[in-house]
Design a protein around this nucleic acid. Structure first.
Lengths: 123, 123
DNA sequence: CATCGTTATGTTTCTTCGGGAATATCGAAA
DNA sequence: TTTCGATATTCCCGAAGAAACATAACGATG
């Protein structure tokens, strides 16, 4: 453990206010909700409690002008959740933001990485 | 309080491994050490304890192939700290990385911001 | 109308992180 | 050789936040 990552992780977060922000965690959650159709399943995949996943969804639903996730209770499957159009737009918007920023930063990242201490267990 | 920021804050961090990373906090600390010539003063300016400031410096000194901060003890002024060439390179490298990434992301940020809920106390 | 898996929400426990205090060390200069 | 302000390091404690646990509500379907 504690190995250096094969390629440095570039993590960015946009902070609109003290309690309005979006970063890698919320983006991944949206993505997994979109894939699984369930808040609980998405959370499980990410190793987070349902409660936490739900809290993040609640926060996001409150910060955008329309909810990003619609959820239904009951029924044969117990219920589920889907991304709204706004949700899809937020997710894809964040992803392309991430891509553009990372592309623009790549050379700088490599330069910084070159300054790291060489370690014995370097792979 | 809790007002939305005039312009969204763009925060990014490069993660090389579980305990090797650099982001806004360490960068600002380096900057203030450079300005003040003191770990303690830099920490005070940022509202952080000397202990924490020193810990961050220790971490950074360990992760790069050369120390980023040199410190001296004793003397008339009690001692002090300065950035090494590596330290300056890391700081300026991170800053230009940040600038480039932000520039590349600006349009996307604006688009996301446009999806935020309009609030009554909007200024 | 009983079942089942999910959403929704409250409560309690635990862990982590950092602050604060306390102490030691250093060395130029008065 | 005393002073002084900064670095260096340890220990204890509190706050914040997440995890864990506990319920309740829901509703299509069999």
């Amino acid at each position: 453990m504690n190995r250096r990552y094969p390629n440095p992780r570039f993590r960015l977060r946009i902070v609109f206010s003290e309690d309005e922000m979006i970063g890698p965690g919320k983006a991944e959650l949206l993505e997994r909700i979109s894939n699984t159709g369930s808040i609980a399943a998405a959370g499980r995949e990410m190793g987070m409690s349902y409660k936490r996943a739900w809290q993040l969804v609640e926060t996001m639903n409150a910060m955008f002008n329309e909810p990003v996730v619609l959820s239904t209770r009951g029924g044969a499957s117990g219920g589920g959740a889907t991304l709204t159009e706004t949700g899809k737009a937020v997710l894809s918007g964040y992803r392309s933001l991430e891509d553009e920023a990372q592309k623009a930063a790549e050379e700088h990242i490599a330069r910084l990485q070159g300054m790291l201490r060489i370690r014995g267990d370097e792979n």
